[in-house]
Each structure stands twice: as C-alpha cells, then as structure tokens.
Amino acid sequence: MKIAVIGGTGFVGSRLVDRLRAADHEVAAHGRSSGLDLQSGEGLQEALGSADVVVDTIDAPGFDETASEFFHVTMENLLQAAERAGIGHIVLLSIVGIDRVPDVAYYRAKVLQEVLVVEGPIPYSIVRATQFMEFIDKIVGWTSDGSTVRLPTTRLQPVAVAEAVDTLADVATGPPLNGTISVAGPDVFPLDELGRLTLRVRDDRRSVVTDESAGLFAAVPTEAIIAPADARIGSIRYTDWLG
C-alpha cells in the first residue's frame, strides 16, 4: 500500500513512517524539510503523488486563536489536493475529548479540522488520542515558576506514543471508518498527582501545588479528556514508561 504521511518528519509522523515501512508499506514522509508547505499548498500535489492513503499528523504552530485559521487552511488544501489525486482514504490524528472543551481555543480549532474532514469529499478515519506520555514533562513545565509547579485536578489518561502510532498504522492500512476511533493509556490520573509522580521519578525537587486555575488544563472539565467507553486501551502504564 502506498501511504503519504503529512507531518512525516515530525514527532508522531516520523514514528508512523517507521512503523509502516517495517510492515513493508511504501511510505513517503512529507513536511517542511521535504519542501512541503501545507499552508500555501506548495509541493502538496507532488507529495500525494500516486498514494492510496494520506495521513495528517501535523500540528499548529500555536495553541491560541491562530490555530483555527491554520487548521482550516491546511485541511482545505489537503482535501482539495487529495481529491485531485484520487486518494481513497484520509486519516487524521486528533485528540480525545476536544468536543467537550469549548473554552480552549486549540481544541475548538481541532474540532473545526475534524468537521472539515467529515464533510469533505474523501472517505475518512479520525484517530483521537489522549495526551502522550512523552509530553507530560512539557505539560508540567507550562505552569512552573522555577521551584513550584501549579496544576489543576483535571484527569488525564496518558498514552505512549508508540501505542497511538500502532492504532494510526492499523487504521491507515485498513478500510475507511467514516468515523472516529479513540486510543488511550490504561491509567487515569488527576494532573496534579501526575505531576508529583513525574517529578518524584525524575528526582526533580520542584513541588506541585494544586491550583484549579493554572494553565491550559484549568479550562478542561475534570472528566472531559479521558477515554470514552469504546476506546482502544493500550497496555503501557505511565509508571512503567517513566521507569
């Protein structure tokens, strides 16, 4: 199967490319470093070439209101080019619970991106993942003042990026779902407890203070971004991953 991965040189995309190539699929990785500008459309038609499937793993450059315009423009360009190229399946990487968090600009932007895919001309699959284990350190750092980290009790269900990539690969090589599948890790943590656990294992002496107004996740309802009942649940536990 011929698969084009947009964002294929990025954190998730590069891992997906490796996973698909290991399964003997013909995979092309595309991103800015390969000459693709998804915002202008430059290099997009050439990138899709004779692919059967296109997977979109790109991320917006910011988490503010600019994300909506970015996802709108890039997805419109991708859908139009995919239709011209005769692509039979588009797969989008998205985030669990975004439709339940209207107060976060980035999540509203991802909802818009999903709507464009659903209403577009290409058979589709949407893979929603919970927060990646690999990003928890960064999340903890967002609200750190050097010696103290302030975190709300919003519940997270982190997933190892390898298991999210496995789901992406399975979906990309199967028939279009014309629907959504979710993937999450096996354990749920309040974010403040997750922060304490992470810092303790890292031997990081910063202290965690519970603060329901701190950071992006303060605007997320407590249960909004944990896995739905029908989610695909990974086997890698965060405590084992940390170790």
Rank of each mutant, 00 (worst) to 15 (best):
71 F>W: 04
195 G>S: 05
174 G>C: 12
179 G>T: 03
81 A>D: 08
133 M>A: 06
218 A>L: 10
61 P>M: 01
44 L>Q: 06
55 V>P: 06
138 K>V: 09
44 L>H: 08
137 D>S: 14
38 L>D: 05
69 E>I: 08
85 A>Q: 09
64 D>M: 11
111 V>L: 10
84 R>N: 08
188 V>P: 01
98 I>D: 00
109 A>Y: 12
182 S>P: 08
6 I>R: 03
240 D>A: 14
116 L>Q: 15
198 T>Y: 12
99 D>S: 08
50 S>V: 03
155 R>F: 00
115 V>K: 15
2 K>Q: 11
93 L>M: 14
92 L>S: 14
208 V>P: 11
90 I>G: 03
45 Q>I: 02
239 T>G: 00
241 W>T: 01
137 D>R: 12
15 R>A: 15
206 R>C: 11
94 S>M: 08
199 L>G: 05
64 D>P: 12
113 Q>V: 07
110 K>H: 11
41 G>E: 08
171 V>T: 13
156 L>K: 04
53 V>P: 02
66 T>C: 01
184 A>V: 01
204 D>F: 09
120 G>N: 09
9 T>E: 07
139 I>F: 11
163 E>P: 00
197 L>W: 08
122 I>A: 10
90 I>R: 04
195 G>A: 07
193 E>D: 13
235 S>N: 10
241 W>Q: 02
152 P>H: 03
238 Y>P: 07
24 D>H: 13
59 D>W: 01
119 E>I: 02
54 V>P: 05
178 N>H: 08
216 L>D: 04
153 T>N: 10
97 G>D: 07
123 P>S: 14
242 L>E: 06
128 R>L: 00
200 R>M: 10
125 S>H: 07
107 Y>I: 03
113 Q>P: 09
10 G>L: 14
68 S>G: 11
81 A>M: 11
169 A>M: 12
168 L>A: 07
144 S>K: 10
127 V>M: 07
131 Q>C: 00
166 D>H: 02
1 M>T: 12
187 D>T: 15
79 L>F: 12
58 I>G: 02
149 V>I: 14
108 R>E: 09
35 G>P: 03
180 T>D: 01
16 L>I: 06
51 A>K: 05
92 L>H: 13
128 R>N: 00
210 T>N: 03
31 G>L: 04
143 T>G: 06
200 R>Y: 04
119 E>F: 03
116 L>H: 11
224 A>Q: 05
85 A>K: 12
56 D>I: 11
6 I>S: 06
98 I>K: 00
119 E>V: 01
120 G>Y: 09
64 D>L: 09
243 G>Y: 04
178 N>V: 06
168 L>W: 07
52 D>C: 02
20 L>Y: 13
103 D>H: 13
60 A>H: 07
41 G>A: 09
39 Q>N: 07
157 Q>T: 00
97 G>Y: 03
29 A>I: 05
149 V>L: 05
73 V>Y: 01
54 V>W: 09
51 A>Q: 02
218 A>K: 09
17 V>N: 08
78 L>H: 13
52 D>N: 15
222 T>G: 03
173 T>E: 11
122 I>T: 13
118 V>C: 15
99 D>F: 00
185 G>S: 08
67 A>H: 08
26 E>N: 14
201 V>C: 04
194 L>I: 13
103 D>K: 14
236 I>L: 11
212 E>M: 14
